[in-house]
């Protein structure tokens, strides 16, 4: 390849202009167009699927949150989410990154099993796997239907509600796989707790 002026400089000049033009097209026009369409057609989704209670925003239906008491311990009045390595901070997402046979992870799982079992008054063998493992995002908004059912008795008792009413809430908020076979069954913790709050207020 000869390094004379014509063959090296000309493509570089074209390249600079190409980067600028394509930036205008794909980096300015494209995101603005999509934002315009999204804000017009699906403003709720586009702005974070915010959930409201008492006329104010209390979180996003897609972002998990902690349900702790004033001391920072899990509050028995609420359905509890999965363990999170980021404390459900949406500005610090990511997982534990521990391997499937890692001794530290093994210890954490063992501890979580005992904690969840004691907190809900069940045996460790009844604790489902999502209750003792950290999610990928650390802000997983969902738990398994099994984990929601496991918490029913404890939540009902703490709130002085009939067990059947709380169990019915869980059933109503259990979502199957998308289209019946995509992804996994789940219960949205924030939506379930909002419904629970309405029930206790009545």
């Amino acid at each position: 390849m000869s390094l004379d002026l014509r063959t090296t400089v000309r493509p570089l000049l074209a390249a600079v202009r190409a980067v600028l033009v394509l930036t205008l097209l794909t980096g300015v026009a494209y995101p603005l167009l999509i934002t315009g369409v999204a804000q017009a057609a699906f403003p709720g989704h586009a702005n974070g699927s915010m959930a409201e209670a008492d006329g104010r925003e209390v979180g996003s239906a897609l972002i998990g949150q902690t349900w702790n008491d004033a001391d920072g311990d899990p509050d028995p009045h609420w359905f509890q989410p999965r363990p999170s390595h980021g404390g459900y901070d949406p500005l610090a997402t990511g997982s534990s990154q521990l391997g499937a046979s890692d001794p530290t992870l093994l210890g954490e799982v063992r501890e979580a099993r005992e904690q969840v079992a004691a907190f809900n008054g069940v045996s460790v063998d009844e604790v489902p796997r999502d209750a003792v493992t950290g999610s990928a995002s650390a802000i997983d908004p969902h738990i398994s239907p099994a984990y929601a059912r496991l918490q029913t008795d404890r939540v009902a008792e703490a709130n002085g509600l009939p067990r059947e009413d709380v169990a019915r809430l869980v059933e109503e908020h259990t979502r199957g796989r998308d289209l019946g076979f995509l992804g996994n069954e789940r219960v949205n913790v924030l939506e379930l707790n909002l419904a629970l709050r309405e029930l206790t207020a009545r």
């Binding site: 999509i34 804000q39 989704h45 209670a53 104010r56 209390v58 949150q65 509050d75 949406p90």
Partner: peptide, 28 residues
């Protein structure tokens, strides 16, 4: 993707107060 729930805005993180009184930053 937006129709299925993905976010599309130019907003910065907005702070909300959760039902338990904790503060949470919801990004855009």
């Amino acid at each position: 993707l937006v129709a299925l729930g993905a976010v599309q805005s130019f907003a910065g993180p907005q702070e909300v107060q959760t039902l338990t009184g904790a503060a949470q930053q919801i990004p855009g």
